[in-house]
Design a protein around this nucleic acid. Structure first.
Lengths: 179, 179
DNA sequence: ACCATCGGTTCGTTCACTGAACCTACCGGC
DNA sequence: GCCGGTAGGTTCAGTGAACGAACCGATGGT
């Protein structure tokens, strides 16, 4: 239902993919999940998304197998949303889209990606500039750039000011440490 | 304005890219343009998109430099929309998204992509399986798969039933030849 | 004169996103 | 027992965008 009623008339795997992840906010939720964001409130403050929309996106992404809802504590009951293999497989598309945005929109000032094993830049098609290997998502390190706000209001953005290996859970500072 | 009011709060090149191409239908218009579709009516029948939405998307994509509006005949005045270098640079993202759709949604039955020089498959990250080179978009050939409707109603889908090199203009059969 | 094509614009309806308010469950302090 | 705070939601009125059908102007063919 991503476009119009749907894309059933579209015999195209790009359209099929967009049926799943083409709605407003959806790709940004997946991006955050790959960055390691797992908790409802962290998605909420980092994206600035309406709660109703976030609930809907997390539900459909879970139904589609892109995220997995996992109980991580019983009292009080708390769930986290963890990206699945299917979700992590969206990384090449997100990386390519980000590469386009860096090159043609924001001018390379925000974030870049490095190969964790050797520190080389991850190139446009996903290979490592230094060692030439095709870097799997789990071996990518996000490195913040000079264009980022150095003192953002939300704890998730603050946590993402430090280099961060993708897929690993993000540790947000408790609020009381921010003052 | 792709999401919410906009993504200004998002310091992320993925969000910046989605500001430009994240609206409903936009990526499918770009996909068709890369497939060689250039004329208003061809986009219209192939996508099944409302006319007002198509007009709006072509206008903003032209303003963003993703497409170029070009007069190809004077009487009657007729323009075509040709993908620019900036637009063709979206190919890695579209290919990666299509790869995900093929692998996780449609089961490899629609279209695939080959390296024009050697006939090798284009792999997940955009390299050629046979010769290993990173295949530029102009050297990619779209090859139809067994899951496609063999007698589609619109002339653009019919034209895309034959292998087609990307970026080259699509030649649609005149309607009277279809009967 | 008549019909068809191409590339649009206009407009009423429907649908999705937005943002604020509200709710439940739990915890800690006093 | 009461209050405040956190976490993870749902509900709802207002708005903006998408939808689809109708219309339009310029041209070409017969």
């Amino acid at each position: 239902m991503a476009l119009g009623k749907d894309y059933v008339t579209q015999e195209c795997s790009i359209a099929r993919a967009l049926e799943v992840v083409g709605e407003r906010w959806t790709l940004l939720v997946v991006r955050d999940a790959i960055y390691g964001v797992r908790r409802y409130n962290d998605f909420l403050v980092h994206l600035g998304i309406p709660r109703a929309v976030l609930s809907a996106r997390l539900r459909t992404l879970t139904e589609e197998g892109v995220l997995e809802k996992r109980r991580y504590q019983e009292t009080p009951p708390r769930d986290e949303y963890v990206v699945t293999e299917r979700g992590a497989a969206l990384w090449p598309a997100l990386r390519a889209l980000g590469q386009w945005g860096r090159e043609y929109v924001d001018g390379n000032r925000l974030r870049s990606f490095r190969h964790a094993d050797c520190g080389g830049d991850v190139e446009p098609y996903g290979t490592c500039a230094a060692c030439g290997t095709l870097v799997p998502v789990a071996d990518v390190v996000m490195v913040p750039g000079p264009g980022l706000d150095s003192a953002p209001a939300d704890p998730v953005s603050r946590a993402l000011l430090r280099p961060k290996r993708l897929l690993e859970p993000l540790e947000t500072d408790p609020v009381h440490l921010a003052h």
